[in-house]
């Protein structure tokens, strides 16, 4: 074994799939952050917070697209994060499997509910 422990020359072992989750968590996190910031600023500073005001704001192309991206980002982000929590604390494989399936169905259900409404506008 090569004994270089740091830097670009080190030998990385393992299945190599962890870094994809790590990167996805950051990319999706930034997308969600942007959506939250846009919504928060609108809530704080927009003059018209009636249905018409919100509907026109959320229905414009850019915000609609951002919202759709954000819903998909939330699914992936929450799947990685919540899965990590189950993996860390739930020792029984049977319970963990149940929680994983629940998590996937919960997230997909929320996403379909949201995407359906956004696309219908």
């Amino acid at each position: 074994m090569n004994n270089i422990k740091a830097g670009t020359e080190r030998v990385v072992t393992g299945a190599h799939y962890g870094w994809k989750g790590w990167l996805a968590q950051r990319v999706t996190g930034v997308i969600i952050f942007i959506w939250v910031a846009v919504m928060a600023l609108h809530w704080l500073f927009a003059s018209d917070l009636s249905f018409a005001g919100w509907n026109a704001f959320m229905g414009c192309g850019a915000v609609k697209t951002l919202t759709l991206f954000t819903i998909l980002a939330v699914v992936y982000h929450a799947w990685i994060g919540v899965r990590d929590i189950w993996m860390d604390y739930v020792k029984s494989a049977r319970v963990r499997m149940f929680l994983h399936v629940f998590t996937i169905l919960w997230l997909l259900g929320c996403a379909l509910y949201g995407i359906g409404a956004v696309l219908a506008i």
Binding site: N55, M58, V74, Y113, G114, I121
Partner: peptide, 24 residues
Amino acid sequence: HRISGLGLFLFLPLIMALIVSVFT
């Protein structure tokens, strides 16, 4: 960070319902 993340996951249907109400 973990607790808030899990909480947001559990309350996601409520958050989604708020977004949906603006669109429908």
